[in-house]
Write a protein that binds this DNA or RNA. Structure first.
Lengths: 134, 134
DNA sequence: GAGTCTCGTAACTTACGCAGTTACTAGACG
DNA sequence: CGTCTAGTAACTGCGTAAGTTACGAGACTC
């Protein structure tokens, strides 16, 4: 995918965790299963920890585990935690005097934001537990 | 923006054309107004020509103009013509044996496609003529 | 306390896409 | 024939993200 590399890794990992919440996994284990690098895993999962979805512990027997019951974590929680966005809401950095461009930008941005809300609403209908059962 | 650079250029140009459909514009004129390069303009508008939205003519007094009445061209037509896509529908190139990943991929792709259809439906409610009037 | 295991993070490399640019060809007009 | 335009190939530059290496900070075992 494109921007969904992080999202795929996060969802994949959390879905597995939902199947065995007690198990603590190291970033090396996760990276191995996902076919990537431990540092990449820590970068991505670090965002989920900041969002309160995961806990991480250093040292012997340390690693990653869910911070909440898997039934309470939705795909939307993960999407939002990773700051994924369709709109990219740039701060209108171009000081354009063209009224057509302004009107257009407002229109498109408005539709995009509405669609993004629909996406989040749809993603929030599925929890990371439910995905496993397909 | 990110992937919306082409879309912005296309919509901006077509909105102006909607205000004066008879006028033929050169890629140099368009590039100048949009703050970009004639080759970039031809690349982007070329896609719209392939989609039947624009006509282009070479030679003296040549240039670009609308192929249809501006009232019949919607923002969705432009979006689709540019092959914009939220899903990026990769052909599942990873031969992953992990059932969790498969279930996840199906679920996310399904939601994304549904959302993309909503986006196109919303964009099709506005024509390039209407944008001018705000 | 020494050794080991883990996360946290900085710094660098690599890959990729896209805008921009240059330069050329192909038509169209006068 | 000269010029004006689009069409297109080829290259550069830039930004983003993944991958990699390296090291520091805690936490546990002995």
């Amino acid at each position: 995918m494109k921007r969904n590399s992080r999202l795929s890794l996060a969802l994949h990992t959390l879905s597995h965790m939902a199947g065995d919440p007690a198990r603590v996994r190291t970033s090396a284990d996760i990276a191995d299963h996902a076919g990537t690098n431990p540092v990449v895993v820590r970068r991505v999962l670090g965002r989920l920890r900041e969002a309160g979805l995961l806990l991480s512990e250093k040292g012997h027997a340390g690693g990653w585990r869910l911070a909440r019951q898997p039934e309470t974590i939705t795909l939307a929680d993960v999407y939002v935690a990773l700051d994924e966005s369709l709109v990219t809401s740039e701060p209108d950095d171009v000081p354009c005097e063209c009224s057509v461009e302004h009107a257009l930008h407002r229109r498109v941005t408005s539709v995009m934001q509405e669609i993004e809300q629909s996406l989040i609403a749809r993603l929030s209908e599925t929890t990371i537990s439910e995905v496993r059962g397909q």
